Structures are given as C-alpha cells and as structure tokens.
Simulated scan of single mutants.
Amino acid sequence: MKDTLFESKRNWINEQLEKSVSNLNLPLELNEALIYTIEAGGKRLRPILMLSTFQAFGEVNNKVIEPAIALEMIHTYSLVHDDLPSMDDDDLRRGNPTIHKKFDEATAVLIGDGLLTYAFQIISGSSNLGAEEKVYIIHQLSKASGFEGMIAGQFMDLRGEGKELEESDLTAIHQKKTGELISASVKIGAYLGGANPPQIEALNDYAEHLGLIFQIQDDILDVKGKEEVIGKPVGSDEALNKSTYPKIIGLAGAEKKRDDCMVEAKEAYSRANIHQPELLSFIDLFGNRMF
C-alpha cells in the first residue's frame, strides 16, 4: 500500500473521529480524557480496511463513513481496557502513557465504556444508512466485540497466562480477540458496497487469515521488534508468561505460519473475483510490518 494513500485515508479517519466527539456535552476532565484517547492516534488499519473493501465495489460515499468511525471507536475501547491493570497492565501505548496512567483507572474504564456504546449510537442514529443496513452493521460489530468475539478472546488470553497452550488454543484466542473485528471490517465494507454472498464469504476467509497474519507478526515483533518503533516494551508477552506462536512453535515456525497464512489470504482474495490492489497490499502490510 502506498504511503500517500495510507496517510490520506488515516488523516481522513482522524478528522472524522475528532468531528464525531467534538459536540458531545461532557464534564471537562472526561472530555479531556476522551480527546487524549482519540488524539493518541494509531494506524487506523481496521477502518482503512473497511474503506478499501467498500472501494472494491464503488467509490467511497457517506454510507461508509459512520460504520468506519464506529469500528475504530470499538477498537480503541478494546485497547483502553486491554491496558488496564486487571488486564494486560501496560503503561505505554504507541509510546505514550496509557489512559489509566495519564488519568486514572476509573476514567479509563468509563472512556472505554463510552466509546463502545457511542459507536452503536452513531450507527443507529445515522441518516445515511437504511434500517436493514443498520441491523447488519450492528449485528456484525456487536458479535465481533461481544461474548463470541473480543470478550471471549480476552478472557481466554488472560486465563492462558502461565499455561502451556496448544497451537490450536492460541489460534482460537487470536481469531476471537483480533480476527473477529478484522472480519467485521471487511464484511461490512463488502456488504455496503453491494457484494454478493459468495464474495462476502470469500472476503471473510481473506479477513480471517489477515487477522492471524496480524497477530502472528505481533508475536514475532514482541521477540525481535524495537521498542521505539512498536511503541511498547519488547518482551512484554514473555514477562507475562503468555503463550505466543514463537514460544509454542519457535520463531522460525511462527514466521513460516505467517507466510502460509499470507498465501492463503491471497487465494481467498482471488476467489472473491474483485480487483482491489489495496486488499492485496494489506496482506503484505500486516505480514511485514515492523510497528
């Protein structure tokens, strides 16, 4: 993916995020924490992925704006809660103090709760989406972020600390914790763009492999990445005694699994019978990223 294209979409998403919270009537300190959370930035990969999938079927229009913003709010909520002392207990996120360190733990919990619920308020109140579209989007986002998605994945991840997991168990954790929201990004983008059911199914397979690629590379970077690039301490997974792909199947085995998933993602993309080079670029971006 070209840097200029990536930056253009990310800047657009950042503008839309800031606009979406600018008119909220909040207590001063809560508003300060919310702005800090939004302006902390991020790669915005999931909403960019949604936009790119939508563009496989037509030009971006108002129909996809609010789903993309809601998606990023849900992702941001998950990061805020993941960093809490009762979860992963991280002090840094993208090189900056996490919300509970910058403010306090209660504020971090409330910011996360607020982002999650506001995401659904944005979708349900949209004038750009039809009733059936709202139902589809809310179903996909709530499933990905709820008990069958991120909640189960995070629970399984926490319970797996200090235990020697099987590779299949680790894959199940990552499919729920990371993969479900990535799949929702692609399915919503395809659905709103007018994809037919076989195309959505093929793109869902693509997204499932993409989620694994992202997480395997994340595990690899925890071993061989650079803190100043990835924005968090290297070796944090090992410090928590977490099961990772390099720990279970070795660094070389993890790199091979990542490469195999990249091949399978490209095959699934081909089955969708579309022409969208950006989606192919995402495979390389996720698999070769150093951040």
Rank of each mutant, 00 (worst) to 15 (best):
H209V: 00
L210S: 04
L210H: 06
L210Y: 09
L210F: 11
L212Q: 15
L212M: 15
L212A: 13
I213R: 04
I213V: 15
I213Q: 02
I213P: 02
I213E: 03
I213A: 09
F214L: 10
Q215C: 06
Q215P: 05
Q215D: 04
Q215K: 10
I216E: 02
I216V: 15
Q217I: 04
Q217A: 02
Q217S: 04
D218M: 07
D218L: 13
D219K: 01
D219G: 03
D219Y: 01
I220C: 10
I220K: 04
I220S: 05
L221R: 05
D222H: 10
D222C: 10
D222V: 09
D222L: 07
V223Y: 14
V223H: 09
V223S: 01
V223Q: 13
K224N: 06
K224C: 13
K224T: 14
K224R: 05
G225T: 03
G225Y: 02
G225A: 07
K226T: 13
E227Q: 14
E227V: 07
E227W: 00
E228T: 08
E228H: 13
V229I: 15
V229D: 14
V229Y: 12
V229M: 10
G231V: 13
G231E: 12
G231H: 12
K232L: 13
K232A: 11
K232Q: 06
K232M: 11
K232P: 08
V234T: 04
V234Q: 02
G235R: 11
G235Q: 07
G235M: 05
S236M: 03
D237H: 00
D237S: 00
E238V: 09
A239P: 00
A239I: 07
L240S: 14
L240N: 15
N241C: 07
K242T: 02
K242A: 03
K242I: 01
S243T: 12
S243E: 00
S243C: 08
S243R: 02
T244H: 03
P246H: 04
P246S: 07
P246D: 06
P246R: 03
P246F: 07
K247Q: 07
K247W: 02
I248M: 03
I249A: 07
I249T: 02
G250F: 12
G250V: 11
G250K: 11
G250H: 10
L251Y: 01
L251C: 11
L251E: 08
A252Q: 14
A252S: 14
G253L: 08
G253R: 05
G253M: 08
G253Q: 05
A254E: 02
A254I: 09
